[in-house]
Design a protein around this nucleic acid. Structure first.
Lengths: 332, 332
DNA sequence: AGCAGAAGTTGACAAATGACAATATCGGCG
DNA sequence: CGCCGATATTGTCATTTGTCAACTTCTGCT
């Protein structure tokens, strides 16, 4: 354990009083390789180590973010499918990843979403974060490759009670941590038992302040949930099964930012909805940059509902989903 | 063949109305390779082309800036020598490239400078640009890997008459062009024949406006010139040989932004200096981010003069020069 | 001091990559 | 219609790179 600690310290950028020479070698190897285009053997010779060591250095340089590969999202917007999506749904940006490993779809979408978000971030941004498997995947994989100062990450809906491994708090915490942002968690349950209690709670100074931050976010990251039997909403403990069935009976087709919408994106309100703590659909539309990451055959309808109602400015999905969306929108 | 058809349809389905169809394959190859870490052979199979084609796609993706490798300048600041430089000369940032091909030193420094500058740029920046071989090398190699809007590039000293291939106009034009910035060239000669004429010219509305821009720059990029017999100043036609000799006689050790400074960075003024059109040394110090790129054995003294007088906030050099600087500063 | 375990390094081999000449495809144009 | 030149693609081979088990060095602990 003690040893592991030691190595951690070496890896962690801060906390080191004296920068070891070790960092230098890694930096140099990285520069000689990626900037000067020398081969690993040449670098090995110059640094007087074996080539295998250079391989390790370069690996570490990538892991530590000393070097990183940037894929231009602007170029992503120029692909045919991305354009079609943008035209069909009036999006400001779309990024479509090629089909690949089915199993890893969420991971891969997360990677793409992370790149798009990271690319957009600017000094002083306040970034709202919803929750879900996909949002977590984004949070898990985002990383800053350039200095962006003064970021705030704010959880936009109350914390869920379910023991899901993609809770709002978790998504927010991880994301903020990875980009060195101030982290603001909403200190309230996602759903309260009465409308009155919700009003009381929201009147608390702490909550007022936090909700102010939510409303001042200039970007937001969210996914799309469907309503199927195995869907996330049903697992996340947002409401009793009957309550969700009730939503469905009244036309609910998708869930975004913890709110239910019908096939055309209209809010499906009701008593339960009024007990939810979090950003509302109307408030969502006031945020300038609304980044949505979603994909998968089971979500097509839900995504169409979301996109049609203009809840999204920047959409990230996979090829198969994109084509299904375009086809479906065409026939509609 | 039938298989190939399928992929062809994806690539060039409808009429070639848009030249971007082609981008799709390149974009996909780039994504699958750099984001999904697939091997070129796997990608080739999926895209139904030969692996060699994938190699080409990836090459083009890099050339077109669809993918780019970023080397974190912050990490560069952590190397031992960079730290030593920062401590010794009170710099905000230093980037030291490892020794390499002697001949290509200017190119390699240009690459490093370009990365540092590109990394710093923010929306709305106004970037002052001096001139010289090194500055040109930066301009030649800079490229935007993320969207930065509303940039202005402004030439900070008058245009030289010499036919040098690194004139102020050229440096400014190339740099602005490569980063899609507004380009403002100073429409005046570097040196006028009388102080009075200079005053007259600078009173012109056009020039007034341009000089205002110069003074409002929030970043500046410049190199360091030495005074040796083969030095740039003597070739650039900034003044008659006698005039330059006169500067030297009065202690001139280096030239930055077209102005002469002594061994401790003090301005070496005089009649000639008063006829120069361009930013002054005092004005230089008012610019928040002052990026200086310089290296090479012949420039050690000149660089020390520059660094000691706090003209620089961010300094880019090579290992050999850095070590010489630190050694020299230690003995002084 | 001596030992245990982890981190760092190495050599050797298999796999992946880059280079390039040869070949195929496409869009005019006589 | 067929030929031309330009552009895109491919097969092949030498080089470069990643992997992995063995080895060395270092560190903390008894």
């Amino acid at each position: 354990m003690a040893k592991a600690k030691t190595s951690d310290r070496t890896d962690a950028e801060k906390g080191m009083l004296v920068p070891t020479e070790f960092d230098d070698s890694i930096m140099w190897a990285a520069w000689l390789y990626y900037a000067d285009q020398m081969t690993q053997s040449e670098i090995a010779k110059r640094l007087n180590v074996s080539r295998a060591t250079i391989v390790n250095y370069l690996q570490e340089a990538r892991e530590r973010g000393i070097v990183s590969v940037h894929i231009n999202p602007k170029a992503g917007n120029r692909t045919r499918v991305a354009r079609a999506l943008m035209d069909t749904f009036g999006l400001a940006g779309a990024f479509v990843i090629p089909d690949g490993d089915e199993q890893a779809l969420v991971q891969r979408l997360g990677d793409a979403g992370a790149r798009v978000l990271a690319d957009q971030m600017e000094d002083g941004d306040t970034i709202g974060v919803a929750w879900g498997r996909t949002v977590l995947a984004v949070a898990d994989q985002i990383s800053l490759t350039r200095p962006v100062r003064n970021l705030t990450v704010v959880q936009v809906s109350g914390s869920s009670t379910g023991e899901a491994d993609f809770s709002p708090e978790l998504c927010t915490s991880i994301l903020s941590n990875r980009i060195h942002a101030r982290c603001v968690n909403l200190l309230a349950p996602a759903v309260l038992s009465t409308k009155a209690l919700k009003a009381l709670l929201l009147a608390e100074p702490v909550l007022l302040k936090q909700m102010d931050l939510v409303h001042s976010a200039n970007r937001i990251l969210f996914g799309v949930g469907d309503i199927g039997p195995k869907s996330t909403v049903r697992q996340a403990g947002i409401g009793e099964p009957e309550e969700i069935d009730d939503y469905v009976a009244r036309g609910a087709t998708a869930v975004i930012i913890g709110r239910f919408i019908d096939a055309h994106g209209g809010a499906v309100g009701g008593a339960h909805d009024e007990r939810i703590v979090g950003i509302t659909l109307d408030e969502l539309k006031n945020i300038p940059s609304r980044i949505c990451v979603a994909g998968g055959p089971s979500k097509i309808k839900a995504i169409i509902a979301t996109l049609e109602a203009d809840y999204v400015t920047h959409f990230i999905t996979d090829m198969a989903t994109a084509e299904a969306l375009i086809a479906a929108a065409g026939t509609a």
